[in-house]
Nucleic acid binder design. Structure first.
Length: 885
RNA sequence: GGAGAUGUAGCUCAGUUGGUUAGAGCGCAACAUUGACAUUGUUGAGGUCGGUGGUUCGAAUCCACUCAUCUCCACCA
């Protein structure tokens, strides 16, 4: 067989192999009737730039799942794609145009969006290449983009359906507003940053109120305290005139349980338009809601000439000064620590304000369930509660339920330009008839108003929350709303694999939306991987400069090594640390795989194909390695089915390096060379390794010239006819003899090159040892080996005892009786301790009564053996001591 | 304020439903170098499994409490 290079150079092979896979069509599954497919909808990376380690982890794990299932013969589909990521992408492009002094407003909607689309095109290409670099075996013929025409159609379609079902409504409500993005943010798009600030105690008529934001208080006319608060009881229901920022105002005092007597002074004034709690209270008590801060973060006209149009936040000090001059500031706490809410995309402080937005009603019962109807929220909870969707690890169930229970109506409109424009049109006709007040909600753009026939129509300028479209991902990618074969065959998908950080953002939304649209779950399982951290356990981020670029690592160590480093040593839901040394370690392993194959190739007679037949099995070593291989296959299959990839990978790693290379290949170097078995094991090993390290395994498979591709090969199945328990156990005894001899040699400083003699008293295992004489001699570097069932203790010989076998190495120049006695005594103590531990157990009637029978028998037998060993040892020690005297 | 995770060798982590003597990789120490591989081999040192108490014949594993680290959710004017 053709010889291969000494070291595996990933770069030389990876791109070619990927192209071959793609060309072969292996990524596109065939639909087989009656056979359940395995489908993963790839979480679409944002179309904003480059892949990070989170993506790399996701791609590695999903590719392992897909390759495993594909090799098992399951039609396996992995749908790739990208997400337009409205706010994130728009912000990025805004930054780019800012470099040449433009803003989106100077460019205008159309031109700006043109810029965004061009940017997206570029980064999509980058992402496509990077996904390929990771070796992802996804079906590129089905690649989708959340903003492409098919998915946009799905978005409009579902919007219209939900609107018609009364699930989507438009309303004035208080929302999180980012003054930089000039858009609303959903509740979970708000982040909290701890901040130390001033806390002001301000006289408000007869009472004192506390606030961190005095600038929002211009129009506060209602003061509230807890109904049980004795300090304020006398004021409840009273009206009063108080001196305030712009002069005296009429104020009223209310009692409400929502006021916390413990906080501040226990009394607060209401700012209904700019505080969530105040807004709710204002609604409850039917109070006037006056907007004093506009969408640009500046004051509206209602605050008076002096401040109108000025930034609210920046005016704080000036307003405090006015209050101070009026003598209304009682005191200022300089060290108030609280959580400032900021925009998750740009970090700008969120300005709560009231505006007209579109919402999804999560409580309205619309999904049919028997004779009843249930809400989106209830259904989303039920499908997990009833086990229709399994979340791995299951501790996230609780988090999921908690989030859903507290879920308020979902604000889906965004005042940004990039995204799906809401499919709603308003009639701007002069001759307003009653019908024209009603918005036109439909998938296709209307040409004229159905009410008055006017063609003066204008589409809603708002776009949809990016998660609204990605919430449809599992089925919109398969062609919905059209009834396609793909949708029919591949939906629901099997597993949704993603980081736990987007459980709410995305996973929960998908469950909501899919249950509504299809009355079906989007996936049966949710596998949440952990987040990648740096060597010190810190989150990787650009600002901290501790990030690792997966592509740099691929360049340096190869994709296979990077994949292993992201999968082995990690478990679902738990964060893990990544650093170069780790990846380098797996690069070494990949090279080890390469070289083990290289050895096999070099020993392969090059004429005939090496079909494996049972008649080829010859030696103990063959039977042992086949047994180990079958055990591996069995265990790995269980692990893979249960998504225990780390364990499966570790087991394959240990087999490859510690069993196949360190022992079987070493034994093969002698007369045990058996190309048929060697090749059989190698082939199976390559298959098992393939999902983890697809490139190196495929390129080695290529060298086998089987004419097939490993990606499409059959996954190994446990074959008990290839298990030889007895022979495997016997060979392990031989291995222990070899290890023992090596151990004494190393301990005594016998140079590896020096050949020495040995005598083995093998007891019941003598026959076996004789047949393995040559292996022992070669691997333990023994010149003359004497084997007998039993015999005299050799004088001046180093000794070792293992599993009923006595080994003597007569190395006179290195022999020291007193040291040998000590060694034997140590061994005696060791065995004695063990015997005592077992003895105490088997002499305990409770143990004998209650422990499983097999265990008790086993322990008793072992105890006997230990006692016999101790006897023999004691004899030997005496002999040695006699020799000494 | 609420919830969760983690704590095992110097470091990073395994340890599946409780079962003899707790494992691996890296690192460390010693030795080895033409033959698959120095991206290597052989051998070795290193752990009272965070602590306390309990359940059990038996606990790293189950329970309670406790300490430490981290994360998520909520958010108070």
């Amino acid at each position: 067989m053709k010889e291969i290079e000494k070291a595996y150079e990933a770069k030389k092979y990876e791109d070619d192999i990927y192209k071959k896979w793609e060309k072969s069509g292996a990524f596109s599954p065939k639909k087989v009737k009656g056979k359940k497919p395995f489908v993963i909808a790839m979480p679409p990376p944002n179309a904003t730039g480059t892949l990070h380690l989170g993506h790399a982890t996701m791609l590695a794990v999903e590719d392992i799942m897909i390759r495993f299932k594909r090799m098992q013969g399951t039609p396996s589909l992995w749908i790739p794609g990208t997400d337009h990521a409205s706010i994130a992408t728009q912000n990025k492009v805004e930054k780019i145009v800012a470099e040449r002094g433009e803003t989106r407003h100077t460019l205008g909607r159309e031109k700006f969006l043109q810029e965004v689309h061009e940017f997206v095109k570029k980064s999509q290409n980058t992402i496509r290449n990077q996904v390929r670099k990771m070796g992802s075996s996804c079906d590129w013929t089905r690649e989708r983009y959340t903003l492409d025409s098919g998915l946009s159609k799905a978005v409009s379609e579902i919007f219209v359906r939900m609107y018609n079902d009364g699930l989507i409504y438009r309303g004035h409500r208080i929302v999180n507003w980012c003054v930089r993005c000039t858009s609303t943010l959903a509740d979970d798009e708000v982040e909290f940053k701890e901040e130390k600030t001033k806390f002001y105690y301000i006289k408000y008529g007869p009472v004192v109120i506390g606030t961190a934001r005095p600038e929002t208080k211009f129009q506060d006319k209602i003061i509230v305290a807890h109904p049980d608060d004795k300090r304020y009881k006398k004021y409840f229901g009273k009206k009063m005139t108080v001196d305030w920022i712009n002069g005296p105002i009429e104020a009223a005092f209310l009692a409400d349980k929502n006021a916390d007597p413990e906080f501040g002074t226990g009394a607060m004034t209401l700012t209904p338009a700019h505080d969530f709690l105040d807004f709710d209270l204002a609604k409850k008590h039917k109070l006037e809601i006056v907007q004093i801060i506009g969408q640009d973060g500046n004051f509206t006209d209602v605050v008076g000439k002096k401040f109108a149009g000025k930034s609210a936040r920046a005016s704080r000090e000036a307003i405090v000064e006015i209050l101070q001059k009026k003598g209304l500031i009682e005191r200022i706490d300089e060290n108030y620590v609280h959580n400032l809410s900021v925009c998750y995309r740009c970090g700008t402080p969120v300005e709560p304000l009231v505006s007209e937005q579109w919402f999804v009603d999560v409580n309205k019962p619309v999904i049919k369930e028997g004779d009843k109807k249930v809400s989106l929220k209830k259904r989303a909870i039920d499908v997990v509660k009833k086990g229709k969707i399994e979340i791995i690890p299951d501790r996230f169930n609780k988090i999921y339920f908690h989030w859903l229970n507290d879920l308020r109506d979902w604000c889906i409109s965004r005042q940004i330009w990039f995204g799906h424009r809401i499919p709603v049109w308003y009639c701007h006709s002069e001759n307003k008839k009653p019908l024209c007040a009603k918005p036109i909600v439909q998938v296709k753009a209307p040409t004229k108003c159905p009410g008055c026939g006017s063609n003066k129509l204008e589409q809603e300028s708002d776009t949809l929350d990016t998660w609204f479209s990605s919430g449809l991902w599992t089925f919109s990618t398969l062609g919905w709303p059209d009834k396609t074969d793909d949708l029919d065959y591949f939906h629901p998908t099997a597993v949704l694999e993603t980081g736990y950080d987007i459980l709410f953002f995305w996973v929960a939304r998908m469950i909501l939306m899919t249950n509504y649209a299809l009355d079906e779950i989007p996936f049966k399982q949710v596998y949440l991987h952990g987040l990648v951290r740096d060597k010190n356990g810190k989150k990787m981020s650009k600002s901290a400069g501790n990030g690792i670029d997966p592509l740099d690592m691929i360049d340096k160590f190869g994709t296979d090594a990077v994949r292993l480093s992201l999968v082995i040593g990690t478990s679902a839901g738990n964060d893990f640390r990544l650093y170069e040394e780790k990846i380098a370690g797996y690069r070494n392993f990949v090279n080890k795989i390469w070289n083990s194959a290289r050895f096999a190739f070099m020993n392969m007679p090059d004429n005939k194909p090496h079909k494996f037949l049972k008649s080829h099995i010859k030696s103990h070593a063959d039977k042992w390695i086949l047994t180990e291989l079958q055990n591996l296959i069995k265990e790995v299959n269980v692990d893979m089915e249960n998504y225990h990839f780390s364990e499966a990978g570790t087991k394959i790693y240990n087999f490859t390096w510690g069993i196949y290379c360190d022992w079987y290949l070493e034994m093969s170097k002698g007369e045990h060379m058996n190309p048929a078995v060697l090749l059989f094991v190698l082939k199976n090993l390559l298959k098992l390794l393939h999902p983890f390290v697809p490139f190196v395994t495929e390129s080695l498979w290529n060298h086998l010239e089987t004419g097939t591709m490993l990606i499409s090969e059959e996954w190994p199945v446990y074959d008990k006819t290839l298990v030889f328990t007895k022979e495997a156990k016997e060979l392990k005894d031989i291995m222990e003899i070899i290890t023992s001899i090596r151990s004494i040699r190393a301990e005594k400083g016998v140079e590896p090159a020096r050949k020495i003699n040995a005598t083995i008293y093998g007891g019941a295992k003598t026959k076996l040892i004789i047949t393995k004489e040559s292996i022992i001699k070669r691997m333990a570097r023994i010149e003359n080996l004497t084997i007998a069932p039993k015999g005299e203790k050799l004088a001046k010989a180093l000794w070792k005892y293992v599993n009923g076998i006595n080994i003597y190495l007569p190395v006179e120049d290195l022999f020291d009786i007193s040291q040998e006695v000590i060694r034997m005594q140590k061994k005696y103590e060791e065995i004695n301790k063990k015997a005592e531990s077992i003895g105490s157990r088997i002499n305990n009637p409770n143990f004998v009564q209650r422990a499983p029978k097999e265990l008790v028998e086993k322990e008793m037998k072992q105890h006997q053996e230990l006692l016999a060993e101790m006897d023999s040892l004691q004899k030997q020690i005496k002999e040695l001591q006699n020799l000494h005297n």
